[in-house]
């Protein structure tokens, strides 16, 4: 309830932490069906949807937190855990699969010591798998942020990752 402000889970402090969120909430005040745009903008502002942000949205929009959590876990676009500064999207589509995408993914996971879907403790990298990024000619392929890296082998993975650390 009113104590949610004190229990921030991501390092921000009290009111200041919610300034951006409150602006978003004011913008959508009274707008029907505004939950998804609010979640999108909140995620843009905070990088993910922290628990206290979800709780504040619930309180201010008068929507049960359980329902918001249901929506946020239904759509792949929403993230409830902090994400890395660099998002690695490793393609597991058909073309990449037949050209060794599994081994590439394993090399990345081994190098960063996290599994797909996870984020390194230093918040440097998040690994995700995707079904196709439309660059089958370069298979196996991955994207790091907006850069595309093709014709991958497990051996060249460390070198590429080094550029981003």
């Amino acid at each position: 309830m009113s104590n949610t402000e004190k229990k921030c889970c991501c390092g921000g402090n009290d009111g200041k932490h919610f300034a951006q969120l409150d602006e978003i909430l004011v913008k959508y005040q009274g707008v029907k069906g505004a939950l998804i745009p609010v979640l999108q903008e909140a995620q843009n502002a905070y990088g993910y949807l922290p628990k206290d942000v979800v709780k504040r949205i619930a309180e201010k929009m008068n929507i049960p937190a359980s329902q918001i959590y249901g929506v946020a876990t239904f759509y792949a676009q929403f993230h409830l855990n902090p994400r890395g500064r660099n998002i690695i999207r490793v393609c597991q589509g058909t073309a990449c699969h037949v050209r060794g995408a599994k081994a590439v993914l394993k090399a990345i996971e081994d190098q960063l010591q996290i599994a797909a879907g996870q984020t390194t403790p230093d918040l440097q990298f998040t690994i995700e798998t995707v079904a196709c990024i439309g660059a089958c000619g370069l298979a196996p392929v991955m994207m790091i942020n907006d850069d595309t890296h093709g014709r991958l082998t497990p051996a060249i993975v460390p070198e590429i990752l080094k550029k981003y650390s």
Binding site: A58, A65, I68, Y69, G70, T73, F74, L80
Partner: peptide, 13 residues
């Protein structure tokens, strides 16, 4: 919560 095969019924978080 979640969807498809992974759907469950759960409290928030």
């Amino acid at each position: 919560v979640n969807r498809g095969f992974n759907t469950t019924v759960s409290p928030a978080f």
